[in-house]
Design a protein around this nucleic acid. Structure first.
Lengths: 227, 227
DNA sequence: CACGACTGCGAACACCGATCGCATAACGTC
DNA sequence: GACGTTATGCGATCGGTGTTCGCAGTCGTG
């Protein structure tokens, strides 16, 4: 329990001693750049350290461990949202607008998909997002807990779609290829008729991604909040 | 593209040479045991290797890389499902039964939460699950693609609830604690009124987990499949 | 002015995933 | 049954990772 002050409760500068050469924002920016280019693994403590031109050990003056570094990155990126001063009053339209922003952010920073799925700690920018989402949901007449659940569900769905969108576009992972190869084999083997039928189904042409996301979110959210 | 045969298309024994000392099942079982006890990170190639009493290099005769080892573990655990010979015909009840099994498996093997969220490659047992889920959804009159989407959504929701359930029970991660500490501070600061209100909301008493899961799944799935 | 809190950082530790090369064991073939 | 082909087991090793230690240097405060 003597875990000392958590990242977001520590002051960036603590008064005494020489002034730090870098700011959290600078470090986060450098790390985000690395991760954007080479995935989350590319933002290792060492690589980030010498991206800002310092030794591996120096980073630990700003951050207790790599988890906190990633928290810094996540919060920096969560600062990219732009919130309207006033919402329209149409809660579904308002929250869908937020969802679309989240989707765009995930597409800009694919590593953020991994981060948001692994239950990243919440920082100031994430708190702002929650506040705004709740503000958008103000017209809905259900308890706050239910709204928070709905927001979490929304995030999960957006993340899921972002992953799928990226999996389709970028160069396929070897895992993807292995799965495709194996599925092809399974379907020809004929012992999974329902699966085979479902995968060759053409009755519903693959709807455009963004459109599908809107539709699914609308159904899910109305189901959770008014159904 | 010369990635050779994928894991599940390779034979376990390839005819020539001495017969392997261990089977995939044995290795997977050992790795699962380690991961159950100490998390996914505890199932490192080295630790798994000397858990079965061999050197670190020997594992690579059975598996091309750690990803394949994890795929082995995931599929072994996916073999824990038990499917009825015939479904009841009530598609919602039938698929909810599958969802509950998935939830139970995730509670038994918490590391599986991470695995299933990081888009693990699909193996034989996972294919069986898909087949059975589609069989349960047979009465529903929508295209196969939509059904697959619904199943993916169901898995995502179950995974989300499993994570939340574990976060509440087990000893809190330091990340969890940091978040709690920070949220407490944010709420007393008073600049996020909606959030503060939502988190102290007692209008809807925290519903029992399993019950909540059922409810949310029912709403979401009916929304996606018939709405 | 001096003390002590703080910073930068080279060196090191304990791991990790993965590869190489060699001795050894089993199978198909003649 | 001998042989060559083909796998396997595995010690040694490489490059990378997160993290800690200890020391020299710097700045604010008493």
């Amino acid at each position: 329990m003597a875990s000392e002050a958590a990242l977001w409760l520590r002051e960036e500068r603590s008064g005494r001693g020489p002034q730090p050469e870098y700011s959290r924002a600078q470090i986060a920016a450098a790390a985000v750049k690395l991760a954007d280019a080479g995935g989350l693994a590319a933002a290792s403590t060492r690589r980030v350290a010498d991206a800002i031109g310092t030794g591996p050990a120096s980073l630990y003056r700003y951050v207790r461990n790599r988890g906190e570094l990633i928290a810094l990155m996540a919060d920096q990126v969560s600062g990219e949202y732009e919130y309207p001063q006033t919402f329209t009053g149409d809660w579904l339209a308002d929250i869908l607008a937020l969802a679309r922003q989240q989707f765009a952010i995930l597409m800009r920073h694919p590593w953020m998909i991994d981060v948001s799925r692994s239950g990243a700690p919440i920082g100031p920018a994430a708190v702002d997002f929650l506040e705004q989402a709740l503000r958008a949901l103000e017209p809905v007449e259900v308890g706050g807990r239910v709204k928070l659940e709905a927001i979490a569900m929304m995030s999960a769905i957006v993340t899921m779609f972002a992953q799928e969108a990226l999996a389709g576009s970028s160069t396929s992972t070897d895992g993807q290829e292995a799965t495709a190869q194996f599925l092809a084999h399974v379907m020809t083997a004929g012992r999974h008729p329902h699966l085979a039928a479902a995968m060759t189904d053409t009755s519903t042409p693959p709807l455009e991604g963004a459109d599908l996301l809107d539709r699914v979110l609308a159904k899910t959210l109305t189901g959770l909040l008014i159904g």
